[in-house]
Write a protein that binds this DNA or RNA. Structure first.
Lengths: 355, 355
DNA sequence: TGTAACAGTGGGAGCGCTCCCATTTGCGGC
DNA sequence: GCCGCAAATGGGAGCGCTCCCACTGTTACA
């Protein structure tokens, strides 16, 4: 008696309890407003072919009853779901240790806030879940898909393409991406970073790049190269360190670079985490940052602000990317015939102490 | 003609196109299997009252047609939605800069992967969105709710309680939490940290705490106090610095502590970010860490691994918390009458260089 | 052989909505 | 005052499923 719930302790409650008074239906709203079902439906869905009088009566009734349309019933007949999925291949743990993921969500959610669209989160961590997702998509359980972190050979975008499901990628697979996407100007950001190093008077600028099957890594490397060449410097393979996007990767690549080109005086890293690893290695090798070696990261993630010295880094407008993705997707859902759209957002160099 | 889609460019396509061949329905499966709709439904839903023969025929037909049940139709009649919402009050940007949020999602998603439950992500960033969420919940659009980051006076848990919606909190509002929750052993973790400092021979151990309207902050402060008292030390107000969970907060609190108790030789911080701020301030004040002042954080977030010196910190099993939350919620949905459950998971001290 | 008891089954009803067609209403022009 | 057109409206049909009741066939027991 004195415990939490006020329910009778019995197992199966009566039918009264089971369905309660129930939420009001269209029919009830129609009755109260003194109009037909059709008219209520028109008002709810914002059709223009309703008289002011009827509209007012319906709105009054809706307010009075606290009517909220039953989504399932609507979906059943329209076969719209009013839901989109944000798909995250979880192999990308990289994403998870950075604000990237959260900022994307934040942006997407902000854009969706005003509409009535639900955001479904789908993590894919292995082949089984990939298959499930395909079945899921085929079953038309969402109106559209946002896909984060695409690798060059990721099969998912192809599935989306074949199924003709409206979709927007964060990033792209290559420079011939047929699907809609939103990307940061990775090449431009990298170029800015390297120009900054050049202006500082650095002569031997190395780079540590991410996995080259990802377009982001390619683009950042491309920007590095472009900046060197536009300054009349030669692009040299020996100055390029390869790594995955992990701290260990950064350390290992830095070690190799130091062994290969001991006289290097700057490193542009394709991510902050990479740069953090490189920083540790530089310190271990007795190099001072930025005095002996200048260092720039990419992402402007939380890590960049907490290293010592604080890291100069290239910022991408991640939340805005999220917002843009959501907007493009909604447009594509509204008009599936439209041409795919591709948006590249500007990056920005945040100068701190490391360069 | 040469453009992307193969659809005719006209506005409204014929009925053939609009509904296409359509996904197979229960009825079609029944026809192919040579049984009635009821029997197919029973097989799909795993009812035991079906003959082996019928079951086999249905399964064969399902496979052949690639049948997937229409969720909306099911929801319409059962008024189950097979969806749960993960609600995140976005004011907690704190969560977003740490892996916390991602790990929770990861855990929840792992637990959900096998079932057919959808995960909806709902960010709430202001009063308007709060109201929308309430309407949403009232409209029974989800079977249950996971709520992250609860403040003592958060109205949301109360709404959930009143609506009798199955729900599980991450953390609790106070020590008399009526709803189900999963929390880390914050007090225990704090106690471990302080004991560690005591063992190290520290004499003047200060703490920097988070906002005291959050139970986590209270609990960590409580653990600090308990460890001191069990060692026969006195708990002294002047050794307690108040902050929000930000880096600036940590810096400010550290500055005040140093002014008030210059001879302090250790600080236990209620979060890593706080500790990172404190670390900066200590360095600015010329104190060496850990030699002059030992420092411990909480969360074992990515920040802890990248400070210099690397931070000793209390780890919480966040992903497991996510998994447990999802499990408890599913159980509560399956049996709404059951008593609320509360789970506290152990924390662990990760010793690095700062203490 | 009659008769329960029961597992197994088919299919009607109905969930709450949108779509669409048939009907009603309003109104300007002759 | 009447006709015709357009705007506004009501409500039947039907989306694909589950629930449940009525029915069949089988088995066990008197």
């Amino acid at each position: 008696m004195s415990s939490t719930a006020h329910r009778p302790p019995g197992a199966l409650t009566g039918p009264e309890e089971r369905r309660g008074p129930g939420r009001p239906t269209l029919e009830e709203v129609a009755a109260l407003a003194g109009v037909g079902r059709g008219t209520v439906s028109r008002v709810i869905n914002g059709s223009p072919r309703v008289s002011e009088k009827a509209k007012a009566a319906v709105e009054q009734a809706v307010a009075e009853l606290g009517y909220v349309p039953n989504r399932a019933a609507r979906t059943l007949v329209t076969s719209r779901t009013d839901a989109i999925a944000l798909v995250v291949p979880e192999a990308e743990t990289r994403l998870f240790s950075e604000p990237y993921f959260s900022d994307i969500i934040s942006g997407v959610s902000a854009e969706l806030a005003d509409g009535d669209m639900q955001l479904l989160l789908v993590l894919v961590r292995n082949q089984r879940e990939r298959d499930r997702l395909s079945a899921y998509l085929r079953a038309q359980r969402v109106d559209g898909v946002l896909l984060v972190a695409v690798h060059r050979d990721d099969p998912l975008p192809t599935v989306l393409e074949d199924l003709r499901i409206p979709s927007v990628l964060a990033g792209r697979r290559g420079d011939q991406e047929p699907l809609s996407y939103v990307a940061a100007d990775n090449a431009g950001g990298a170029r800015m970073a390297v120009r900054h190093l050049l202006r500082r008077g650095c002569h031997r600028i190395a780079t540590i790049t991410g996995p080259l099957d990802m377009e982001v890594a390619q683009a950042r490397l491309g920007g590095y190269r472009a900046a060197l060449e536009e300054a009349g410097r030669q692009y040299r393979e020996e100055l390029v360190g390869l790594a995955d996007f992990t701290e260990q990767g950064g350390r290992a690549a830095m070690r190799e670079l130091l062994a290969r080109v001991p006289e290097l005086d700057a490193v542009f890293c394709a991510s902050d985490v990479l740069a953090a690893g490189a920083l540790q290695e530089l310190r271990a090798a007795g190099r001072r940052v930025p005095d002996d070696v200048a260092l720039i990261g990419f992402d402007d993630s939380i890590v960049a602000r907490h290293t010592d010295p604080a890291m100069t880094s290239v910022r991408q407008p991640i939340e805005e990317m999220g917002r843009t993705m959501a907007r493009l997707l909604l447009e594509e859902i509204a008009d599936p015939g439209r041409a795919r759209r591709q948006v590249v957002l500007a990056t920005e160099l945040v100068v701190r102490e490391s360069a």
